[in-house]
């Protein structure tokens, strides 16, 4: 699905990541961990094309990311659902329209998808909040809404950046549950998190691999977790 081949990323002279090689196979479940500022978000951005690597090659769906033109990049993003760290909503639109935004921008018939949308909002437990604007939502609600928006296009890959960053343990368990369910439906899942307890909890439910960034290199973490 997503392949990083000797990928490096530098900015303003300093190297943040180097020699990163990893393959996300279809249906796999990966955690990405490491200290704050190690480059977790950067690595995720390289995976969905928000950043271009300064070295090496990123291949998404067997295509070299660098060779995609702007429209192809847009089409690629419709196949990768991303839960951003700061959620990224349009603050003037109600929640239901924010979640349906990927459908709207890709020209899908919104009336035909109404049933799907309702079901999805029920799945993340936000059905009663459909008409709320994003500012009125709690942290957990925002994260769940972001997840709903990430999966509404039924993407092949779901990438989540600290999805449990500012929610309590119970809520993070719930979010994890949703991501595990997505994985069982065959989606490739990549989650950046520094919450080791969460990773341990996940390992009991799903065969998750843990990638760790340390000293600008990506390592496959062993059984120490």
């Amino acid at each position: 699905m997503i392949e990083l081949d000797n990928v490096g990323y530098s900015y303003g002279g300093g190297e943040l990541l180097g020699d990163v090689s990893v393959q996300l196979a279809p249906g796999s479940f990966h955690f990405l961990t490491g200290p704050s500022g190690a480059g977790k978000t950067t690595l995720l951005k390289l995976c969905y094309g928000a950043l271009q690597p300064t070295a090496g090659q990123v291949r998404v769906f067997d295509q070299d990311m660098r060779k995609l033109d702007r429209d192809q990049m847009a089409l690629m993003r419709r196949r990768i659902g991303v839960v951003h760290q700061d959620c990224r909503f349009l603050d003037h639109l109600p929640l239901s329209e924010n979640i349906a935004l990927p459908l709207l921008v890709s020209g899908k018939d919104l009336n035909g998808e109404e049933e799907n949308l309702r079901e999805l909002m029920k799945w993340v437990g936000l059905a009663p909040r459909a008409d709320a604007v994003p500012q009125e939502l709690s942290g957990g609600e925002r994260q769940r809404a972001a997840l709903a928006r990430a999966v509404i296009m039924s993407p092949d890959v779901v990438i989540a950046d600290e999805p449990t960053g500012n929610v309590d343990w119970e809520m993070s368990q719930r979010l994890l549950q949703l991501l595990v369910e997505l994985n069982r439906m065959g989606k490739t899942v990549l989650i950046a998190s520094h919450d080791l307890a969460l990773i341990r909890a996940a390992k009991s439910q799903v065969q998750a691999r843990v990638l760790r960034i340390s000293n600008r290199r990506l390592q496959l973490a062993g059984a120490d977790l």
């Binding site: 702007r70 993003r77 419709r78 349009l90 935004l101």
Partner: peptide, 11 residues
């Protein structure tokens, strides 16, 4: 945000 959720430039 629009660009991130897959909107083409034309949209």
């Amino acid at each position: 945000v629009l660009r991130l959720v897959g909107a083409k430039d034309r949209f």
